[in-house]
């Protein structure tokens, strides 16, 4: 059983009389423990695909099984639960709560899983440690660099032990050096058995993945396996 199984996924937006088809029948299977980069030109439907895959959105047609469960016809509350358990998101613009410490940002998913405060604390600290921000748990987002903020976001995606990390342009707001550092962390997660799915424009970011899927006009036009580039391990 594959982790992600999409068959004939369509997503159309109604804009008055116009109908925009963002996805026009996507078939995609992703195995657990792999890393997939989704590429394509602007407007090709990458974000839409990520949103459907991440259960933030629902397809207008087609079937989507996540770990064997049909998630294409769920209520909003059920979708929220699936997101909480299965998926950790990393966004281009970090999307951390301002005026809230890194620690509390990382604790956030655990709050909605009903985990008691002390346990939340412990796990959030461990996740922050894991992304190399040990000393900065009580810093607020405004006191952190972009790369550090994205690490906090990764820690938040990790903390709930979700098997999938989804990242839409996670390096879009970072300089090259920091971008590759962040990619290093994400690759480390794949090594630990997570599945990382990321959207990117940049070929050298996609090079970190073991598979590259390319979209055009809401359809997959290319899907190939590759050997991820070798990264110099920072001391």
């Amino acid at each position: 059983m594959a982790l992600v199984e999409m068959r004939g996924i369509e997503r159309t937006y109604k804009m008055g009389d116009n109908v925009v088809a963002a996805l026009r029948g996507v078939d995609l299977t992703i195995e657990a423990g792999t890393s997939v980069a989704v590429m394509g030109t602007s407007g090709s439907g990458k974000s839409t695909l990520m949103n459907v895959m991440g259960c933030l959105d629902q397809p207008t047609a087609g079937s989507y099984h996540l770990q064997g469960r049909d998630v294409s016809r769920l209520s909003r509350a059920e979708l929220a639960e699936v997101r909480g358990k299965m998926i950790g998101f990393v966004f281009q613009s970090f999307n951390l709560l301002s005026r809230t410490s890194a620690l509390e940002n990382v604790e956030l998913p655990l709050i909605y899983q009903g985990i008691p405060a002390r346990e939340r604390h412990r796990r959030a600290l461990a996740a922050i440690e894991q992304v190399g921000l040990g000393g900065r748990a009580d810093h607020h987002p405004s006191q952190l660099s972009g790369g550090q903020q994205q690490r906090v976001a990764i820690a938040r995606a990790l903390v709930g032990d979700a098997p999938i990390i989804m990242a839409d342009e996670p390096t879009g707001n970072l300089d090259t050096r920091t971008a590759h550092e962040v990619m290093g962390i994400l690759r480390g997660l794949v090594g630990q058995g997570k599945t990382v799915i990321l959207v990117t424009h940049e070929a050298d970011i996609a090079a970190h993945a073991s598979r590259v899927v390319t979209l055009r006009d809401g359809l997959i036009i290319d899907d190939r396996q590759q050997t991820p580039v070798v990264v110099e391990v920072a001391a």
Binding site: A77, A80, R83, F89, N95, L108, P109, Y112, G160
Partner: peptide, 16 residues
């Protein structure tokens, strides 16, 4: 609004 979006993304149900 954005805070609400973030909370929902990490698993907050509409009821929460």
């Amino acid at each position: 609004t954005r805070e609400i979006g973030i909370r929902m993304a990490v698993g907050a149900r509409p009821g929460d």
